[in-house]
Simulated scan of single mutants.
Amino acid sequence: MAIITGPGPSLRSQWLGEKLRELRTAKKMSLRVAGEYLQRDASTMSRYENGEYPLRRADLVALMTLYDVSDPKMRADLEQICEDAWQRDWWDSHKDDFGKDFINVPWLESRADRILAYQHYLVYGLFQTRDYAMAVIDQLQYEEDTPEQIARWTDLRMDRQQILESENPPRIEAIFEVSVLKRITGSAEVMRAQLAHLLEIGEREAISIRVITEESGPHKGSDGSFMLYELPEPYAAVGHVETRAGGLYVEAPRTSTFEAVWQDLERSALSEKQSADLIADRLKEIR
């Protein structure tokens, strides 16, 4: 899959469209011919393949017949992606406020088996307290953003954290630069509460928090923060980098770059126990 930037079709629809395009081109079939089979025009078929429109299950079944898809696993995988493309969850209600691009993030979090989070500037969003999150969002706002919009952003960030309390939470491994701990975000009181929260959630079996100190020297994470989501079949791993211009998503095998960086970060980071001790020491320092 190509790199995707800015607002656009959901990853779910794009995955399905990409698979359908691969099947059609493998049969050396034009969009016009495929469209005639579904009684759709070529432009509509193009929108399906670009992920602009999610494909209905009946149309998917018809196309699988047209493209001679007989393998049971492939058929099941395509039907799963189609179902996910149409499924609505709590975060879809935020689409008008935050755009389709960002709404991919809570979907990835909800689907992931394992999340790798590297942060060089701020505490990872799923680990933020409400006061810390509000301070961050308020600082990053544009002049035209209203207090109501900031409150909605904060609510969404808190809502995303419900996956931490689910029956089968994803394994989350986070690595922070020590500057994340040293930077007073919001106020000393807000920062103390945030560090105490990190110590509390760091004790959970599904969560690992590690810190990289200045003494570790240069490492491959110098390009900045990123997320890596490892998803169950039929989905590939997805790398995500958030920018002011929108999110950038990269699908496997291009995620190998993130994987190589993560391995170097793991070599550079303190152990979980050493990291917890460092966070506790920093908590005592803040007055």
Rank of each mutant, 00 (worst) to 15 (best):
D101K: 00
K28Q: 14
L55F: 02
T213W: 02
K73V: 14
L23Q: 14
M191Y: 00
H120T: 09
G125D: 04
E18C: 03
V105K: 00
L16H: 10
L198I: 06
H240C: 14
M45L: 15
Y132T: 04
L199Y: 02
E148I: 00
L156Q: 07
D68L: 05
G35T: 04
W86R: 07
D223H: 10
M227R: 03
H240T: 04
L198S: 06
V136T: 12
L283G: 08
V211Q: 10
A193I: 00
S10P: 07
T213P: 12
E109Q: 15
L278G: 07
K284E: 14
F176K: 07
R152L: 13
E79Q: 14
L60K: 05
A237K: 08
Q128M: 07
L116W: 02
R204D: 11
R57I: 09
L283T: 07
E173F: 10
V105D: 01
I150W: 01
E189I: 08
F98C: 12
M29F: 07
D77V: 04
E83G: 08
M64Q: 10
A135I: 03
Y229W: 11
P234T: 12
P234E: 12
P232K: 11
A85T: 02
A236E: 10
R183Q: 15
R75N: 09
P253Q: 08
G247L: 06
L198F: 03
M29K: 06
I150N: 12
T129H: 08
H197G: 02
R111G: 00
D41F: 06
T5L: 10
G35D: 05
S179P: 00
K284W: 00
L265T: 10
D155I: 02
R75Q: 14
R40P: 00
Y229I: 05
I184R: 08
M74K: 13
R130G: 03
V33L: 09
I81Q: 06
S70D: 13
G51I: 01
E148M: 03
W107G: 12
A188F: 03
A26Q: 12
F258K: 01
W90Y: 15
D281Q: 14
P218K: 04
M191A: 06
Q14V: 11
E173Y: 11
I172M: 13
A62D: 11
E83W: 02
R114C: 07
V241C: 10
G17T: 09
A112G: 06
S216D: 03
S187D: 06
Y121D: 13
E22L: 12
D77I: 05
E203D: 12
L11N: 09
A260V: 10
L63G: 10
A76N: 12
G246L: 09
Q263V: 08
T65A: 15
R114P: 00
E233D: 15
I4M: 11
